[in-house]
Amino acid sequence: MSKPSPARYRTTNWSNYTASLRKRGSLLILLDKDMTWLAPPDGSPGRPAVFSDAAIQFCLTIKVLFKLPLRRTTGMVASLMKLAKLD
């Protein structure tokens, strides 16, 4: 028993096809400009925390989502902050 041949499609509207390929590769990450990136002073002894819990959670989410090592994640988040002008 042989397999049926796969259907063949012909692209007739190349501008729509190119636009759909561009749209497929787009990525939108919304950053809240009101999010506190730096940790507030807590008054406890020892070294103070540098980043807020929300900022750390955002970085770890990016790390897991894109399967990146930690140093590459920090570089990506730094570039995202430059794009959003949050730093």
Rank of each mutant, 00 (worst) to 15 (best):
residue 1 M to V: 10
residue 1 M to S: 14
residue 1 M to L: 07
residue 2 S to H: 04
residue 2 S to V: 12
residue 3 K to Q: 12
residue 3 K to S: 13
residue 4 P to D: 12
residue 5 S to P: 09
residue 5 S to E: 14
residue 7 A to F: 09
residue 7 A to W: 06
residue 8 R to D: 07
residue 10 R to P: 00
residue 10 R to V: 12
residue 11 T to Y: 07
residue 11 T to A: 12
residue 11 T to I: 15
residue 12 T to L: 15
residue 12 T to C: 07
residue 13 N to F: 01
residue 13 N to Q: 09
residue 13 N to R: 07
residue 15 S to T: 14
residue 15 S to A: 15
residue 15 S to Y: 06
residue 17 Y to K: 07
residue 18 T to S: 12
residue 18 T to E: 13
residue 19 A to T: 12
residue 20 S to M: 13
residue 21 L to W: 10
residue 21 L to V: 10
residue 22 R to P: 00
residue 22 R to N: 13
residue 23 K to T: 13
residue 23 K to Q: 12
residue 23 K to V: 00
residue 23 K to H: 08
residue 23 K to M: 09
residue 24 R to G: 00
residue 24 R to P: 01
residue 25 G to Q: 11
residue 26 S to V: 12
residue 27 L to H: 10
residue 27 L to K: 06
residue 27 L to R: 06
residue 27 L to D: 03
residue 28 L to C: 07
residue 28 L to D: 14
residue 31 L to C: 02
residue 32 D to H: 03
residue 32 D to R: 03
residue 32 D to C: 08
residue 33 K to Q: 08
residue 33 K to W: 00
residue 33 K to P: 11
residue 34 D to Q: 11
residue 34 D to E: 15
residue 36 T to L: 14
residue 36 T to P: 10
residue 37 W to N: 03
residue 38 L to C: 04
residue 38 L to Y: 10
residue 39 A to E: 02
residue 39 A to K: 00
residue 40 P to Y: 05
residue 41 P to Y: 03
residue 42 D to L: 06
residue 43 G to S: 06
residue 43 G to M: 04
residue 44 S to E: 13
residue 45 P to R: 08
residue 45 P to E: 10
residue 45 P to S: 10
residue 46 G to Y: 04
residue 47 R to Y: 06
residue 48 P to H: 03
residue 50 V to E: 08
residue 50 V to A: 07
residue 52 S to F: 02
residue 53 D to I: 04
residue 53 D to R: 14
residue 55 A to N: 13
residue 55 A to I: 03
residue 59 C to Y: 05
residue 60 L to I: 02
residue 60 L to E: 15
residue 60 L to H: 13
residue 60 L to K: 15
residue 61 T to N: 08
residue 62 I to D: 01
residue 63 K to P: 05
residue 63 K to H: 12
residue 63 K to V: 05
residue 63 K to A: 07
residue 64 V to E: 14
residue 64 V to H: 09
residue 64 V to N: 11
residue 65 L to Y: 11
residue 66 F to H: 10
residue 68 L to W: 04
residue 68 L to K: 03
residue 68 L to C: 05
residue 70 L to R: 09
residue 71 R to I: 01
residue 71 R to W: 00
residue 71 R to D: 14
residue 71 R to K: 12
residue 72 R to M: 08
residue 74 T to Q: 15
residue 76 M to R: 14
residue 76 M to N: 03
residue 77 V to R: 01
residue 78 A to M: 08
residue 79 S to R: 15
residue 80 L to R: 04
residue 82 K to N: 09
residue 82 K to Q: 08
residue 82 K to F: 02
residue 82 K to L: 07
residue 83 L to Q: 15
residue 83 L to Y: 12
residue 84 A to F: 03
residue 84 A to N: 06
residue 85 K to G: 08
residue 87 D to I: 04
